[in-house]
Nucleic acid binder design. Structure first.
Lengths: 334, 334
DNA sequence: ATACATTTTGGTATCGATTTCATAAAATTA
DNA sequence: TAATTTTATGAAATCGATACCAAAATGTAT
């Protein structure tokens, strides 16, 4: 590998001059500049980032942390983040946590190790108290997730409003006995204050309340993530004596699982069971029964997350970030 | 940020000793070792990779290059590669090319810049002649793609056999006028020798030939990647006087687009047009008309690609890598 | 022509780690 | 006990780049 001194030697100049050319600083005569460029080309020279970094230059890289990229919600989110960052000449380092706390910490350690200038968290595995320690070392932006009163930029969709509209949509369609499936574990929903999924749940509850309907807590399903979880939920419903007539699933995947199992069990959707998804994934419109769903503003969220990070790195602290709106998409499942 | 000398100072020892503890080399007394560890903890010290790298240590990182992660085929491929690499304690750096030659070059430049020890290419945008120059700087493994006579490990599925079986499947179902859609651009398929997609095409042709059927070159569609491309293909077919009775699409996405457009145009699948996809993406089984398709061994391919790379880095050159088999999945579209 | 300012260039300390070499201390052997 | 080997520790060179400072070259004003 050619180094800066190789280039200097070949050009018959000092490393200082070569460095000036690399960083196109002024005070280099056109003649020498050409000489250096020639030598660089001839040797296929590229400055070693490790060496530059050691001298304190920024990495021009950002980490984007997601649970898994095979989840289309996250792959599309990354897609829009990365496209935005490319324009600002930042590299994107995608970190999958696979739901593992330590993987997330690993991403944050990148800040300490100066591998990245900032981290965009699209999900949170660790406690804020441990995450906040890393603010010493770089910028952190929250996308998609939302925790109260944090001193960092957050961009998220208004889940409360989204779920309220979604519920109202179901009510308008004539459903009144509405079940609710969440990705949360059983305990947390009661305990947590105003966070991501309880926002959703409150929107749901408030819509019911305004319609003077009560919620049957037997119709609350926890820890639902996959299609298989959706299958199981349908089986539970099937075995109930007091059945709901519709369900809001925590994601389109779960919704798809519910619809699929319904078909296999001779339960007709939406006439016997309305199913409303959340996300609006690409496949949702092409299912056997196209899914009615609450669309997340994935693209806008990605773009905004990237912009917030860039602003943050430039020292422009943006306050009052408006939450984005979800949108009810009416198709055939509810 | 704490440095090695901060640790040394706090522990009352030299940086050499601290370095020995970090790299747990021998000849450090248990007493001092404990002292150093204590100081490291107290300061939250992490060695700076840039500095270590400058001294020639490996990055323990590998790049995986794909066109886009929103394509499920690639996100699942990455998923299995990364899971395998994690076990070998390698970091995975995902590089999206977005079909851009320069982005691919950027990934290869990572080798030169010693940011990664190797690159797993899951698609090829540049000529081999330019790629091979980077072999000087690190290892390159080809996954999914296949070029003849390259001096690097390649793992791919036997597209020839897969398409032959797929075509035979269609023939057995009673189709005989079979169209073919490829992702290739118009020119290349004629020119290129035995590469990825012409392998597919040859498998298709040979199956036809063995059945004593000829191929109508009007039924060859180029440059098909997206669902929209699939829509357009159907419109073209609809306007033909001499229509095919089935089509093999280059991917499930294209197939889904064809099926969708068929429904919108009152063409019934499979009775009027059989549609056979390639890939078997997660959504394929859940479409309105579940897709018959040729499944790619994505997971095995990812695992094997990662293993090949690890072997390569260890200096174990693996020859005679067996191509993996595709498998025809019979559902409702053909 | 002289003095002074400005542009161009080179020498070298520095970033944070590793590693070689020298030296000191401890352990082993004769 | 002396000689020798082994173990433990530190000093300093080094990796490849940047940046400060000094020196040389050039330009401008008097």
């Amino acid at each position: 590998m050619a180094t800066i001194s190789d280039v200097a030697k070949l050009a018959g100049l000092s490393v200082s001059t070569v460095s000036r050319v690399i960083n196109n600083s002024p005070h280099v005569s056109p003649k020498k500049r050409a000489l250096v460029k020639g030598a660089m080309d001839q040797l296929g020279y590229v400055p070693l980032p490790a060496a530059r970094q050691l001298r304190g230059s920024s990495s021009k890289s950002l980490a984007v942390v997601v649970p898994r990229i095979v989840n289309p919600f996250f792959s599309y989110l990354i897609d829009s983040i990365e496209r935005t960052l490319i324009n600002a000449e930042f590299n994107t380092i995608i970190v999958q946590t696979f739901g593992n706390k330590n993987q997330e910490l690993g991403a944050l350690e990148l800040l300490k190790k100066q591998q990245v200038d900032g981290v965009i968290l699209c999900s949170i595995e660790n406690q804020w108290s441990v995450i906040k320690e890393y603010l010493k070392y770089g910028k952190i932006v929250l996308a998609n997730e939302y925790l109260k009163d944090l001193p960092i930029p957050m961009i998220y969709a208004n889940q409360y409003k989204g779920l309220k509209s979604g519920t109202e949509y179901l009510l308008k369609q004539g459903f009144s006995r509405i079940a609710y499936a969440t990705g949360r574990k059983k305990l947390s929903i009661a305990l947590l204050g105003s966070d991501f999924d309880s926002d959703r749940f409150h929107g749901f509850q408030d819509a019911l309340q305004e319609a003077k309907l009560s919620f049957n807590s037997n119709w609350l399903f926890y820890d639902a993530h996959t299609e298989e979880d959706g299958n199981e939920i349908l089986m539970e419903i099937k075995n109930m004596t007091n059945k709901p007539d519709a369900i809001i699933a925590g994601s389109d995947e779960v919704a798809a699982g519910i619809v699929e199992a319904a078909r296999n069990n001779g339960i007709s959707v939406p006439s016997q069971l309305g199913v409303l998804g959340i996300d609006d994934q690409p496949m949702s419109s092409k299912l056997n029964i196209p899914l009615s769903t609450i669309r997340q503003p994935v693209n806008e969220m990605g773009v905004k997350a990237a912009q917030l990070m860039i602003a943050e790195l430039n020292g422009d602290i943006e306050r009052n970030i408006k939450p984005l709106d979800l949108k009810v998409i009416s198709r055939n499942s509810a």
